[in-house]
């Protein structure tokens, strides 16, 4: 009996400490976010730092984003055509490809790829800087590591993300066009005109851009925070990188649900 009670108490203690730790970490992350925002003035003042990070997380992600977009578009074209032609409406292929890419697949898949390509690299870089005590050294030289190291990486990711998502969607639509019009032989005019008739700039394109901006903020913040907060050991850095990818993926998918329910509710 006493052992059972002890077991219960232990479990409750574990639950309590886990909860307190999670909430503490969340609070730390939000304070970190505020600190990054407050100190990003220097990053914009020395814009070259941000430029380097745009190159690092944007330009170097170009190939994987564009090729994945192309293949997603090709698959959407094949699958969409197969389903639509059962109902005799294969002209709607353009609509289907464009809407599914612009509203969901473009921002979400681009953000997932961005998290695993650039987010993990940012975490590794900052974590390794911490492990080798470069951040402490900067602090010693009165250089604020948040302003010098973290803020440019954060803004580089935020700026790159909408462009990458737009490129992903464009390549996907090109892939759908390639399969539908060039290989299968859907009418070229019907493909584009049905797409233009049903895709609304404000509702579809602009909402997609807003989504990718939100994902950019979320992924960049998680990446820099996990790097900055990582345990300064080899194992700690590797765990921080894993956490970046897992947390980013979960955050992207959860945020996507919330954003979709706000943006596209009440639309037909």
């Amino acid at each position: 009996m006493i052992r059972l009670l002890q077991g219960c108490a232990n479990f409750l203690r574990f639950l309590g400490s886990e909860t307190v730790n999670r909430v503490w970490r969340l609070g730390y992350a939000s304070r970190f976010f505020l600190a990054v925002l407050l100190r990003s003035g220097a990053a914009f003042f020395r814009f070259r730092l941000v430029m380097r990070e745009i190159w690092f997380s944007g330009v170097l992600s170009l190939i994987i984003i564009m090729i994945s977009g192309l293949f997603v578009g090709l698959v959407l074209g094949l699958q969409g055509y197969e389903i639509l032609q059962r109902y005799g409406s294969s002209q709607a292929l353009g609509t289907m490809v464009a809407l599914s890419l612009l509203r969901e697949l473009g921002p979400v898949v681009a953000a997932l790829l961005f998290a695993s390509r650039a987010g993990s690299a940012i975490t590794a870089e900052i974590g390794l800087m911490k492990t080798t005590e470069q951040l402490t050294a900067m602090d010693m030289m009165a250089v604020d590591p948040v302003a010098r190291v973290v803020a440019p990486r954060f803004w580089g990711g935020v700026i790159s993300m909408p462009f990458l998502a737009a490129l992903f969607s464009s390549m996907g639509i090109f892939g759908g066009w390639l399969i539908g019009v060039v290989f299968i032989g859907v009418d070229d005019g019907a493909f584009w005109s049905s797409m233009q008739a049903s895709v609304d700039f404000r509702h579809d394109v602009w909402n997609g851009v807003c989504k990718s901006l939100v994902f950019g903020v979320a992924v960049s913040l998680i990446a820099v925070f996990e790097g900055f907060d990582s345990e300064p050991t080899a194992e700690g850095v590797s765990r921080a990188i894993t956490r970046t990818v897992v947390t980013s993926a979960l955050a992207i998918l959860a945020l996507d649900f919330v954003l979709t329910s706000f943006m596209f509710r009440g639309m037909s």
């Binding site: 462009f163 490129l167 639509i173 700039f201 851009v209």
Partner: peptide, 13 residues
Amino acid sequence: ALLFLALKVSSFP
């Protein structure tokens, strides 16, 4: 890419 999405894919209002 954004211009392509605005002008070719959607009919810009």
